[in-house]
């Protein structure tokens, strides 16, 4: 237990959380038909998770690539972008992640405290449609903003049109500060959808 890699633990916790959060965003914002979602319990609250193999594969593969960057504290933002049919973003869920300098001790109490904080994010996502306007039919992408360019990273630079949003409305959803991670979630919404 002593040589438990702390960065790895944080990355595991965050990626598990991001997976649940992405599924829930897709459900709440009606990106995909509700028929592919099933009710589950995560962080002791009900959530909706997709049962569609291809969609689940996309989310899993994406987070599989994000994980090593979180581990190394190189991921600045993980962004779930909802796009219209012309591939212009209409809504962006931005997870801004930062980790304080590494701690040497981890305790179960500390981790369960983090779970409580993550639950609050999930609850906020569940009700976020109350403060957002409906989206036109479209698609999603998961983007990543990172500090450095590693040549071995298998992703490509996003197109300008997938990233640029004119005068977005900013809606803060939740912020958490714990000993192992700081995270902020906000939505950027295009004025005209």
């Amino acid at each position: 237990r002593q040589d438990l890699n702390f960065g790895q633990v944080v990355a595991d916790i965050l990626c598990e959380f991001l997976e649940v959060a992405i599924h829930l965003i897709l459900y709440v914002r009606e990106v995909y038909p509700s028929g592919i979602f099933q009710k589950r319990k995560k962080y002791n609250v009900p959530v909706q998770m997709s049962c569609h193999p291809e969609l689940n594969q996309y989310i899993q593969d994406t987070l599989h690539c994000v994980k090593p960057l979180i581990e190394k504290n190189e991921a600045e933002k993980v962004v779930v972008v909802i796009m219209d049919k012309e591939h212009h973003p209409v809504e962006r869920f931005v997870f801004e992640i930062s980790q304080p300098p590494l701690l040497s001790i981890s305790s179960d109490t500390l981790l369960s405290h983090v779970e409580q904080l993550l639950r609050a994010f999930i609850l906020k996502i569940s009700v976020c449609d109350a403060v957002l306007n409906n989206n036109p039919p479209g698609n999603i992408r998961v983007l990543l903003q990172k500090y450095t360019t590693n040549t071995d990273f298998p992703w490509i630079v996003a197109d300008e049109q997938e990233v640029h949003m004119q005068e977005p409305r900013l809606i803060p959803l939740k912020t958490m500060t714990s000993d192992i991670v700081k995270m902020q979630l906000y939505v950027e919404e295009r004025a005209q959808k």
């Binding site: 990106v31 995909y32 038909p33 028929g35 592919i36 569609h52 291809e54 969609l55 996309y58 989310i59 593969d61 994406t62 690539c65 600045e76 962004v79 039919p137 479209g138 698609n139 999603i140 992408r141 998961v142 983007l143 990543l144 903003q145 990172k146 500090y147 450095t148 360019t149 990273f153 298998p154 992703w155 490509i156 630079v157 996003a158 997938e162 990233v163």
Partner: peptide, 27 residues
């Protein structure tokens, strides 16, 4: 762009809403 931040996307794309609707209809 600029400022040292890089915005990246995976090479793969998720299935579209239409593709998923079609698979639901096929069931």
């Amino acid at each position: 762009g600029g400022g040292g931040a890089h915005i990246l996307k995976p090479l793969m794309s998720p299935p579209s809403r239409e593709e998923i609707l079609n698979t639901l209809l096929d069931l």
